[in-house]
Amino acid sequence: MSGSHHDKLTIETVAEPAGHVVRIGGDIDLRTSPELRGRLLQALEEHPERLIIDLTGVSYMDSSGVGTVVEAKRKAERGGTRVILNGLQPRVRSVFEITQLDKFFTITNTIEDARTA
């Protein structure tokens, strides 16, 4: 039993005046979170003002993904970068709420809000 091409994670990083936007698509789980971790840490190396993690295209995230963004946020804070989570679908948002991590992150609904958060 293995995943189809639909399960592939897509990650695109765009440098904007407000900061770096990392747009993610697909499922984030134990299999795909190492790739996400690498891309987030790579984006932080440039010490952007903001790191906007755009999860609009993510329909599934487990604790591996949550742990990955927690690690990125902690590293970002040490380097003076503000981390914003944008566009959480209800199922993804509920994982943050149940683990009480919604209080730890700045969460926005639109990319426009994220750019000024």
């Binding site: 487990d62 604790s63 949550v66 742990g67 927690v70 902690r74 991590l101």
Partner: peptide, 12 residues
Amino acid sequence: DDIRPGGLGVHL
């Protein structure tokens, strides 16, 4: 309350 990566799976 201990904000760190990991340890969330069993809680979920």
